[in-house]
């Protein structure tokens, strides 16, 4: 058997050391959309409350002001809009990310435990976990019970106060959604554990934890984690936009709302009577929300391409 020259440091392995390939297109799209969105928010929420109105009706003031003012001006209350947007960019996602993390980690841990692949649990714990996972199915029932209790006792339960804290809201929603994700994870792990290649790896001599991380978690769970957590994040964004639009956001400090959510920004740019005059003005609201969700989507796609090897198919 003639052994051909063996390269000392093969090129192919050097290439692999550079790490997983990024999807530059997704990154570019995501960042571009975020930037456009920031521009539009700035544009929308700027204006002069006392400026003359060519149509004679209460229209958003950005329509009658010049571009420079629109980009970095003041809102109707005289608050400078620039710092607010910056604030929004850095602090707005924090509660949402917190909620998403609770959702993802909780789901993965409970799911893997319940699947029984890693550790064989005591039957009682298994039953408890199963009951926990049924929470999703029972969710409408829980709501009905709470509503009935609330109305019958006439308790002065300050629901609004509770929801005012976005952190609380995000965490609560995450906890409620964990069982749903845990179920998906448990099913996936069970399905994979019965597959032949896991058996082969065990025969090869890998430890269970190594198999779990290298052969199950990274190639199979991370992509579905990113997708599910991503859609959960979007859910949280919608919730926040809705809540803060009706001014159920965190309390203000230093003149700024502590979370610069879109709802606040939009509420400041529009007055309710606007809707009677021209509902089409709300097109911009939809545009912003769409852009934001799209940019999240593209960034998630980017994250997926980093984690999932073999997504680029060259056979």
């Amino acid at each position: 058997m003639p052994v051909r020259d063996i390269p000392a440091q093969p090129q192919a392995l050097q290439k692999a050391k550079r790490g997983r390939r990024l999807n530059q297109v997704s990154l570019a799209y995501g960042l571009l959309l975020l930037w456009v969105m920031a521009l539009i928010i700035g544009w929308l929420s700027t204006g002069d409350a006392t400026a003359a109105n060519p149509l004679g009706v209460n229209q958003p003031l950005w329509m009658s002001t010049t571009g420079a003012d629109r980009l970095m001006g003041y809102d109707q209350l005289g608050t400078p809009i620039g710092p607010m947007i910056l604030h929004a960019f850095f602090f707005y996602p924090l509660p949402l990310v917190l909620g998403t993390l609770i959702f993802a980690i909780g789901g993965i841990v409970i799911g893997i435990l319940r699947s029984g692949f890693f550790i064989k649990l005591h039957t009682v714990i298994e039953i408890v976990l199963d009951k926990l996972m049924q929470i999703v199915e029972l969710f409408p029932a829980y709501i009905a019970i709470i509503m009935i209790a609330w109305y019958t006792t006439q308790a002065r339960f300050e629901l609004a106060e509770f929801w005012k804290n976005l952190n609380m809201a995000a965490c609560a929603l995450a906890l409620l959604n964990i069982p749903f994700f845990a179920k998906v994870v448990a099913r996936k792990v069970n399905q994979l554990a019965s597959m032949d290649f896991i058996e082969a790896e065990r025969a090869m001599g890998l430890k269970k934890s190594e198999i779990l991380i290298k052969h199950i978690f990274i190639p199979y769970l991370v992509p579905s984690l990113i997708l599910t957590a991503g859609s959960f994040l979007m859910e949280l964004v919608f919730m926040d936009i809705g809540l803060s639009y009706i001014s159920m956001q965190l309390g203000e400090f230093d003149g700024f709302p502590s979370t610069g959510s879109f709802g606040i920004l939009l509420a400041k740019a529009y007055v309710p009577s606007q809707f009677d005059v021209g509902p089409w003005y709300f097109f911009q609201v939809a545009l912003i929300v769409t852009l934001f969700l799209l940019s999240i989507r593209y960034l998630l796609h980017l994250a997926r391409t980093i984690f999932v090897e073999g997504m680029t198919n060259d056979a």
């Binding site: 392995l13 058996e199 082969a200 790896e201 025969a203 090869m204 290298k214």
Partner: peptide
């Protein structure tokens, strides 16, 4: 496991389809 190894019959199902061959060979 270190001293006994097995070659499986159907490589299609006995190799993790999502992992790079390099990773699986380096496991050895």
């Amino acid at each position: 496991r270190n001293s006994v190894q097995m070659i499986f019959q159907h490589p299609d199902t006995f190799l993790n389809p999502k992992l790079m061959a390099r990773d699986m060979v380096m496991e050895a």
